[in-house]
Design a protein around this nucleic acid. Structure first.
Lengths: 232, 232
DNA sequence: CAGTGAAAAATTTGATCATATTCTGGTGGT
DNA sequence: ACCACCAGAATATGATCAAATTTTTCACTG
């Protein structure tokens, strides 16, 4: 049955060849939390997710464990797993953390940035602008995340990137709620300043731009949530 | 089905009965990584852990998933799950992160500390001194962790506490290796300064004390690992 | 007589295990 | 040295058991 382990022929780059199921489920659930249809406070059940995603329960369980460990979901005591509701204190923590993490990563990213990195960031930012003009909120959320995520990866700091990524998972759902109220207008976009700083090779300026972007965006979340902590 | 629901008589108060197995496994594995017998670079297999801990494989898998998500273990590509080896860059990241996190948490903890908190910290620190005098390294590691952990919890910042806790999981194994070389002598202990600051109600002084403790300890790790990155 | 409370049963959900299937890595033969 | 086979490990499924939540009913009171 084998007889082809060596050849591969390379014609098929194996698009989704061997991707473990729990990995797939994890990514789907993660996207669901980050951009998607899971609102803060909403409770999910394992078996409900099994049917929703059409998967066995073991992969779903493992993906859930992972998301819970990352803070994307909460083990609401008895029998509930839900997307965490953030209060003002939590938002304050997240603002403090990102205000410290993101500028540092942006500084390191700028120090290491090559032309292709700059091109990639510029491309994402262009798509992001298009999504804003289009009024495509889901696209905005996803592209904004990908922009920052690309910046993290350029910093060559795997642990801090992990931490920063975990932070996104925590405030992602609330960000979505806020954007749902505000609309794609008036969203902060200091990305142009950042791109200029990277182009000029000025790490400190890049850090300052990112700090401004983060603070502005997060403060908007804080204000919006403090105004209406619950939406129903 | 009618025969079941026998009364149980309730004579057994079941001291720790309702602790899910995967939770137990997780804590055991976590302790193993933090203080214990799993050295950096050491590979573990699922089935090996099943026998070692005497448990089914589903709970072990879930616990592993969780530890991997927290960065305590690494999915070493092929077929191996191992304790991550830290290089100088990783240590630098951890130093930066703790240098920022720990002082902030110590400041908040000091602002919120009550007499019972101070007593608890003092008690842990006394036990810690005893462990050092005794030359009990495992005790030192565990009590040192519990000291900082208690401080985190006093800060009333659940998200940042989670992040800081995850950081411990990452450098715990390396800390153990370093202490194995250095011995319990010469270990940093700026805890007295911290306790004084808390007693005096001086948050900034507490932050400074913790910063000194963290930097001193982590720099020791960095130097020791850069001198001998591999131990065999 | 109606409404509210609790208690019990039933359904739903979560946890664990045993088992089958697949993939990887090593080994032996040519 | 290379290719094929084998063994072991990890992934995924389904079933089974236990616990909790919910619903329903019955009794008691106003």
């Amino acid at each position: 049955m084998t007889s082809r382990t060596a050849r591969e022929t390379g014609s098929e780059p194996t698009p989704t060849p061997r991707l473990p199921a729990h990995e797939t489920i994890y990514r789907e659930l993660r996207a669901l939390v980050l951009f998607g249809d899971l609102a803060p406070g909403q409770a999910v059940t394992i078996q409900g997710l099994c049917e929703r995603l059409g998967a066995g329960m073991t992969p779903v369980r493992e993906a859930l464990r992972r998301l819970i460990a990352e803070g994307a979901l909460e083990f609401q005591g008895n029998r509930r797993v839900s997307v965490p509701l953030l209060d003002a204190g939590n938002i304050g923590e997240l603002i403090y953390a990102r205000q410290w993490l993101d500028p540092y990563l942006a500084k390191r990213a700028t120090e290491r940035a090559g032309p292709e990195d700059l091109a990639r960031l510029t491309g994402i930012d262009d798509d992001l602008d298009a999504a804003i003009l289009r009024g495509d909120m889901r696209g905005y959320l996803e592209l904004n995340y990908r922009f920052h995520r690309a910046l993290y990866e350029m910093a060559d700091a795997p642990i801090l990137t992990d931490v920063a990524d975990g932070l996104w998972l925590r405030f992602g759902p609330s960000l979505r709620v806020v954007c749902g109220r505000v609309g794609t207008e008036g969203l902060p976009d200091k990305h142009k300043d950042l791109l200029d700083a990277i182009r000029a090779g000025q790490p400190e300026a890049a850090a300052a731009a990112i700090r401004a972007d983060v603070v502005q965006g997060m403060e908007q979340v804080r204000q919006s949530l403090s105004r209406q902590p619950r939406d129903d």
